[in-house]
Design a protein around this nucleic acid. Sequence first.
RNA 1: GUGGACGUAGCUUAGUUGGUUAAAGCGCCAGAUUGUGGCUCUGGAGACCGUGGGUUCGAGUCCCAUCUUCCACCCCA
Length: 436
Amino acid sequence: MDLITQAPRGTEDVLPADSYKWQYVEQTALAVAQDFGYREIRTPVFEHTPLFLRSVGETTDVVQKEMYTFEDKGGRSITLRPEGTAGAARALLEHGLHNGALPLKAAYITSCYRYEKSQKGRLREFHQFGVECFGAAAPQADAEVITLAHTLLQTLDVKGVTLRINSIGCPTCRAKYHEALKSYFEAQVDDLCETCRDRLSRNPMRILDCKVPSCGAIAEKAPVMLDFLCDDCHNHFEAVKETLTEAGIDYVIDPHIVRGLDYYTRTVFEFVSDEGLTVCGGGRYDGLIEELGGPHLPSLGFGLGLERLLMIMEDRHARFPEPPKCELYLASMGEKAARRCFAIAAKLREGGVAVETDLVGRGLKAQMKYADKLGARYTIVVGDSELENGQAQLKDMQTGETEDILLDDSLYTTLYNKSLDRQLAGMADLFSNVAE
RNA sequence: GUGGACGUAGCUUAGUUGGUUAAAGCGCCAGAUUGUGGCUCUGGAGACCGUGGGUUCGAGUCCCAUCUUCCACCCCA
């Protein structure tokens, strides 16, 4: 395989046979967001590099080793967005949206880029559904954002995913915690693994996450951030938990959740699959807008990985809607009939019927086979006799039954009534399911 | 970025200790007499055996490099 016929590492194609699943998930996500009052925002795939340096944080892995950064022809440093929040925050400031009604609630579906060694569920180009709530300091906002993600997962019937929440406090209480944590680990630095010794100076909270058993044992007894929260942060977290509990949303407190982006404050959360994959991650970022030169604007949001979501949905055989199918296939015999079919198809499509007809000059039998492969619900054969008397047979491809129909304007009505019948039958099924 | 595994037709695989024109199933295309799919039968197309080097009289089978995918780590969506 050469460069021309091989997609770059860490990228994926969504093929026609699968795209309906993406459409389903994306449409559902935006619809749920809309129910919560989050309206879609679209921002560029690339931004000025300094935006990410400032927001994501210069010491983070994302910035230090994962960004797709290049110089454009005008000598500007440009970066493909590694996440969605920075762009949304930038757009908010650029357009002065924070001067309008607050909170400002936005949702997006975007591609993101991170130069990593790819694996399953870890791509260099991946897609996120994300949500941002700007200008809402109250714990209800935290609860709402979490609930939104939860509702989406429920709506999509995704099982085996656990909500884990934590609070990493504000800069003030976090500084105190860091000190305590550092002195705790420094006391037993010799027993830590090599990477953890590195982390000690860079980001001691990461040691809590280490999977090396010896480190895990030490981390287990380490001081917990939650014990160091200042009164405000503590009360905020308590209120978030109470709100979630009252709303009936299950969660687990996980003091080890440490997000990889610098801007997070207070509430952080993740939805983790039973396999240990983070499907959705987010939290509060009260200082970000200020950091970017704006006013103090407490805000929060999350990013939800679409590839990962689809992956676990497929692993769990989640229900997807039926893939779109051909309603009617018009099989033709002869050039004259082919042109007639083309015209009939065009007319029916105006009414919203999914119609297909031969494009390759196949014989009748081959056309019928093709119609079968398409999953066409009905077929009509148009040959010389049909052209002459305007009559034809409508064949139901599932039952094989045929009925006489007219090849005129009544055809649309005939099909319309049929699809209506089917819809009613489908609804009857729905109700019978409910009854069970 | 570190360590490891894999790579044969669109898909799933077989290919003996390196030896003549690389197999099969599914899928695809076309036929099985006169205008009709799903079953069956027949035939056909389709593989530079991931790519590039090397060893050898001779490599899909051995060696090196490289690319992709997958696993663990790192990290995260």
